[in-house]
Structure formats: C-alpha cells, structure tokens
Amino acid sequence: MKLVVASGKGGTGKSTFSANFALSISRCRDVVLVDCDVEEPNLHLFFSGDMRESDVTVQVPVFDMERCDLCGKCGEFCRYGAIAVLPEKIMFFHDLCHACGGCRIVCPNEAISETERVIGKVWDAPVDEHLRLISGVLNEGEPNGIPVIMAAKEAAEGNDLIIYDSSPGTACPVIETIEGSDYAVLVTESTPFGLHDLKLAAEVVQKLGVPAGVVINRSDGKDDETEAFCREAGLEIHMKIPFDREIARLQSRGDLFSVAMPEWQERFVELYEDICTRTGGAP
C-alpha cells in the first residue's frame, strides 16, 4: 500500500506527522518513508542512521564544435532559452535546460551528444530493522525537482508499505508525489489559512482520484469551520493533534513527540488500521 501525506499549506506539520506516523507503525510492521519534499527535505533531521547516497542526473547536451556550423536550429527549437547561438560559438545554460533531448534531434550535423549532469541526490538510510528512510534532495539553485522525486519514489518501489511525504502546494511536484498513491492524509491546521489551503489540497487529490482523510494539527479546539468543510466534502477527520508547547519544543529540537509520549504511538497505529479498513488493504 502507498500512502501520501500532503497539505496545501506549508508548515502545517506534515513532516512531523509523517515521521511520527511512520515510526509508530514500524513498531508492528516494515515501513519505507520517502521524503518527496525535495526542495526542503527535513525528515532526515529526525532520524539517525548511515545513509547511502546516490546521484540524480539528467541528460544535457554537449556541442561538438568541429561539427557545428552555427546554423541556429537548436537554439530556435529550445522552448526554454537554454541555448544561444552566437556568431562564433554556442552558449548553453544548464539551469534553463529541461533535458528534453530536442536539440540533439533537430541538429542536422550530429554535433550534439548528451552527458549526465547531477541535479540532486537520493539518500537511503535504514533507521532501524523495520523503518527505512529515503530522501530526495534537490541541489540548491536547481529549478526542477521532478526527476529527484521520481528517483526517490523509484528507490522505494517493491516494498509493501510506502509513505510519501509531499512538498506543500498544489503544483507539479505535489502531483508527481501523489500519483500512484492509494490514500492521502491531508494535514491542516485550524486557521483560515490552513482551511483555505486544505480546500486546494482536497481538490487536487479528488482530481487525481485518490481517496483522502484529514488530520488537524496544532488544534486549539476552535476547529468548527474546518469540521464543517470536511463534513461537506466527505473527508473523515482521522485525528486532532492539540497545540501543546511540549510537542512544539520536542519538535523544534528535532525530536519525535511520539517517542517522548508513547501513548501517541497507539493512536497512530489505530489511524493506520483505520486507513487499511477504508482502502481494503491488509494491515
């Protein structure tokens, strides 16, 4: 089974939830947790363990100036402005290149070949016997994290229970992460901002046909508006995590509150079993 933890809004506690959730479930079965928030991956901050690092690369063009006659067809074709053809040379901007391979196809002189360029990394770390953390990390200054998300998800393939932690928002990286999941947990907070963005997230999962439920984090008890929305949208509220200074403090230090407060582990396991019942998966 593949679960995805998502939220329209950033900072609702998605990673906090994912880390505690995955760790709690791993007490009774094997779990692979995948950090797909490749622009700001944080899950590794909660866990220790030796990690194996592998590069994520994309194919970028190399120009053979012996063969190039500066005809300009590659620059004209490139929709991303990554190639400029000067009177005496070619300039290539790797940060604008989407690695589509089109320039190589249009070149009439076979002057373009391709080479691999590293844009990020995948860290694969066994946290303990039952929990494995895979993190996708986009290099700073790189605009496109999609290949890194794909690589991180690929690394987790073949396992029975995979939990994807998505980046915030509703754009392409989020879609890439949610795709292929059996169930989505939407983490929100009880403010008007949280609700506004929960609505967007609910729209995305609905569009992708992924069933979903809600967790309200940092709840101060004033959740009426969020509850009303969830009722209307048919979203089950699985759990409320109260605003609690102790939880906030543990969190800030990079500690997991379910370790210090083990009663939460049971609640996370119950939540997981609840999801299994809803999706028809075996716990």
């Binding site: 620059g75 490139c78 929709r79 991303y80 402005g81 990554a82 190639i83 400029a84 053809v85 000067l86 009177p87 300039m91 901007f93 604008l96």
Partner: peptide, 18 residues
C-alpha cells in the same frame, strides 16, 4: 515575443539582438 515566455527570456532576447 519572449516578453511573456515561460523562461530563458534573457538568452532568447539576446539571441534576437545577435
């Protein structure tokens, strides 16, 4: 024509001058 383009407007506009 690149004033509204998705990206790479700098190099593409420079290409127009060239």
């Amino acid at each position: 024509t690149f004033a509204d383009a998705a990206g790479g407007v700098g190099p593409r506009s420079a290409q127009v001058l060239i």
